[in-house]
Design a protein around this nucleic acid. Structure first.
Lengths: 342, 342
DNA sequence: GTGAAAGCGCTAACAT
DNA sequence: ATGTTAGCGCTTTCAC
């Protein structure tokens, strides 16, 4: 089981009595090499068990064909779909992916950014951690001219391409839907407002209330870490409100589900006593009873688009001036919000 | 925004009037370099904006400090926990992770294995795709002496380290629990029996039946792809059985949940009419009603252990002869299986 | 259409 | 404790 010596282009060159340069060209399908020579080269390459040495090549060409990805967590349906989309596009274009989880902390995000920098990724796709305030840790990459794309959770002000959905609009639609169902006191469970996604969802909620003559009540907005475990706590807060609210719009499905469980345990009927809407269209929505109304969030498409855009920037193709791409997404109405049976 | 010239150890050497070798050593915290010189080196390195060139280093040392991971999918609680565990251990030891999803097909798994090979990973951790039959695509890596570790879904016969739980035993326990609850006709929803995890679970189920005087009935075992979408189909099959079964042991939580939904829709009471047990302890279990009895599957620990073992093999430390590691796991009893209230 | 040769940035054996 | 030197495997300019 001892590892045999690595085969290099020199070995191929020697067996064929040609120069290493020709081998290098032949392997890369260089036009100036004759078909016959190319064929011979490829044959002996496989015969000898040659594998290209990426490092030598990278060292020469100064490009790595590697794309970095930094995400808060992998274990959501949205994220793993997004990454599947990225992988497909990246692989098809001959790029590799290095994936890293920030586990929702800036600290780990900074470490990851540095690792990516030192790994000399050709480009980077990022969705921010829960508590990232400034994005100076990405400056080194930007300064070196490494294309950076933010998706989903994007920074407030930045010069990079952002790929998002219209959080404001769908939040508006969700809130409006609750109002249409007769809700008058609607709670919004928000995430950290430093994150665009949560800030925009809050604004959509507020605007929908305003447009429908419902006075804003600061007590009805609570900030949560949006875990399923945060549900009971949020519910406790909600149950202590007086008068009781009749609708909830949560900034993600996990906390919505956590709430529903706690509310049901407290004897509340959903949607009769209180209607509820989540966000993301996680598989959970169709398991909880009643099924949860939510916002469809197209993970795979977003990943696909992010990677495509990035690769276009790398290769200089396509619309490289686009600074913001907004994907379509929409409200999916299920039982948890339908007070009025249709 | 134009990228300035890359700083190399030669630039640092020149500014300090020392040799590049000293700089290289200083940066690596080599013991033979004086504290003072090291400090100077590190200072000018940051001042100049130096970043190490991994490729040059890899080219020299012939090691990449990169570990590959190939998994069926990322979007299960189990997998992303496992990967989080791996990342933590790997990063702490100075390794990077390249992660790839086989999306449950051998075809993609083969591609991924090749990519890993050409990326010259120092080691590889693999959980097999649903339909992988032989593992010859990993031979190239094995031949080159690249340590390979299988976890969770491991091949039947192989010379690599396997990290697993005792699927047989916990399946036995789960089935025994159903029997203790009074179940006489227990269905097992199995996965592809080429996968150790599903074959072992089936055997545990069968042995528990045998040990308790219940005659085996081939009609009660069905093979499923174990998606939540497979639940209704499996349920249809179950509802057509005569006499009706009174217990189900499913090889994962997703299909168990899918079944529960369909059973409830068909008017079956759980656990009164039919008790049910899943596998994995996915967060879903605590959302479905009644809460699903399942097997706890320690993802994070498994990832941690896999990475630790691999890195030990790479560095030559630790027990490198271990060929099989079995993690503790156990039955978690919830409402879905308790016919007898305790 | 093919070859010669230099050099990418780093490391490590050897020398001092 | 530090310096000299050769070379990892590949690409590419220039030459023929």
């Amino acid at each position: 089981m001892e590892q045999e010596k690595e085969i290099t282009i020199y070995d191929i060159a020697k067996t064929l009595n040609i120069s290493p340069a020709t081998v290098s060209r032949g392997l890369k399908d260089h036009p100036a090499i004759s078909k016959k020579t190319k064929k011979k080269i490829n044959e002996t390459a496989t015969a000898l068990g040659y594998r290209s040495n990426t490092f030598a090549s990278n060292l020469r060409t100064k490009s790595t064909n590697t794309i970095g990805v930094i995400v808060p967590r992998l274990n959501s349906n949205f994220m793993s779909s997004a990454i599947a989309g990225m992988e497909k596009v990246a692989n098809a274009a001959g790029y590799n992916l290095i994936i890293s989880q920030s586990l929702e902390t800036v600290k780990k995000e900074i470490l990851s950014a540095n690792t990516m920098f030192h790994s000399r990724v050709d480009g980077l796709m990022v969705s921010l951690a829960y508590d990232t305030e400034d994005i100076s840790h990405f400056e080194v990459l930007i300064k070196k001219g490494i294309p950076l794309i933010f998706f989903d959770r994007v920074p407030q002000h930045n010069s990079c391409t952002n790929i998002v959905i219209d959080n404001y609009k769908v939040a508006y639609d969700a809130t409006k839907h609750l109002i249409d169902q007769g809700c008058k006191r609607i709670v919004h469970i928000a995430g950290n407002l430093k994150r665009n996604v949560y800030a925009d969802r809050l604004h959509g909620y507020e605007q929908a209330l305003a447009d429908n003559g419902i006075t804003k009540d600061a007590d009805l907005v609570l900030i949560s870490n949006l875990n399923i475990e945060a549900g009971p706590e949020a519910t406790q807060y909600i149950l202590n409100l007086d008068p009781q609210p009749d609708g909830i719009f949560a900034a993600n499905d996990a906390v919505a589900v956590g709430c529903m469980q706690a509310l049901k345990q407290a004897g509340k009927k959903i949607p009769e006593d209180i209607a509820i809407i989540g966000f993301n269209n996680d598989p959970l929505c169709k398991v909880i009873e009643p099924n949860l109304t939510t916002i469809d969030y197209p993970g795979r498409e977003m990943g696909d688009l992010a990677a495509t855009t990035l690769i276009n920037q790398l290769t200089g193709k396509g619309d490289i001036n686009v600074s913001r791409l907004v994907l379509r997404s929409e409200l999916i109405i299920r039982e948890s919000s339908q007070k009025i049976k249709s």
